[in-house]
């Protein structure tokens, strides 16, 4: 394994996904280093969710390759998936379980050893502000709390790669700030992919931004680089995704 591979936690090359005659993702390359937070942006229907489903092994790409921490996701899915934590658009929660039961299930499925489960559970509940809700049924929680449980299940096994699909949806401003600071904290040790439509959110937590449009990457640069060019993220986003005529070749 070369040095480059050990730093890269995700490397996806020329991902393509067709649904019948419709191509949702045309050609996407994505690389992520440890300790990096990537803002994954694009208008509705750009192929963000499809890409994330491919990165997490929920959908097989029509062509292309995905490596998670140097392990091929398509060849050895079980070994690769241990390193991924995924929060889909709709948090995948069992309404009839309590928060503790559900998080323990998530930990066990991700092969957290039984000795570590209790400390992992306490830690993740502390992180996500779920300390007092352990014995509540998930079905009885408010939307914001459900969202937190969703984030908790994605990080309980301490994965190298955390993929969050619109994690701040339905949260109040305080919770939103808490979750963003949690993401920033996670981003120091792990790699995080954050998909969202809220641009200030991206500006406050992400190191790098990748914008996709019609299944292709149209922009990929650090926020620092963007700032140096003197263009705001919002302008860039509008310019690249609003109409195709103004699309410049990058």
């Amino acid at each position: 394994m070369t040095e480059k591979d050990s730093i890269l936690t995700i490397s996806a090359h020329s991902l393509r996904r067709d649904f019948g005659t419709y191509t949702a993702v045309r050609e996407i390359n994505l690389e992520l280093k440890r300790g990096e937070v990537l803002g994954f942006l694009g208008p509705n229907g750009a192929g963000k969710t499809t890409t994330m489903r491919m990165l997490t092994g929920n959908l097989a790409p029509s062509s292309g390759s995905v490596e998670i921490c140097g392990i091929d996701l398509l060849d050895k899915p079980r070994n690769a998936k241990i390193h991924i934590g995924y929060l889909p658009e709709t948090p995948p929660l069992y309404q009839e379980l309590t928060v503790n039961e559900y998080l323990r299930l998530a930990a066990k499925l991700h092969r957290v050893s039984s000795i570590k489960i209790y400390s992992a559970l306490d830690e993740v509940k502390l992180h996500c502000g779920l300390k007092d809700t352990g014995k509540h049924l998930i079905g009885s929680l408010s939307k914001g709390y459900k969202q937190r449980v969703g984030i908790a299940q994605a990080i309980i096994h301490d994965p190298d790669v955390i993929i969050l699909d619109e994690p701040t949806i339905g949260l109040d401003p305080n919770q939103m700030r808490e979750i963003l600071s949690l993401i920033r904290e996670l981003g120091t040790k792990h790699s995080v992919i954050l998909s969202t439509h809220i641009l200030p959110e991206v500006e406050s937590v992400c190191d790098r931004v990748q914008i996709i449009h019609q299944g292709k990457t149209v922009f990929n640069d650090t926020l620092f680089g963007l700032k140096q060019k003197g263009i705001s993220l919002e302008e860039m986003f509008a310019q690249l995704t609003l109409n195709n005529e103004t699309l410049v070749n990058l």
């Binding site: 997490t56 092994g57 929920n58 899915p77 079980r78 070994n79 690769a80 998936k81 241990i82 991924i84 995924y86 889909p88 709709t90 948090p91 995948p92 929660l93 069992y94 309404q95 998530a106 499925l109 991700h110 092969r111 299940q153």
Partner: peptide, 14 residues
């Protein structure tokens, strides 16, 4: 229907 299938498929199990 409850979108929990993703939870199982994303886990490292076959």
């Amino acid at each position: 229907r409850n979108h929990t299938m993703i939870f199982l498929i994303s886990a490292p199990i076959s």
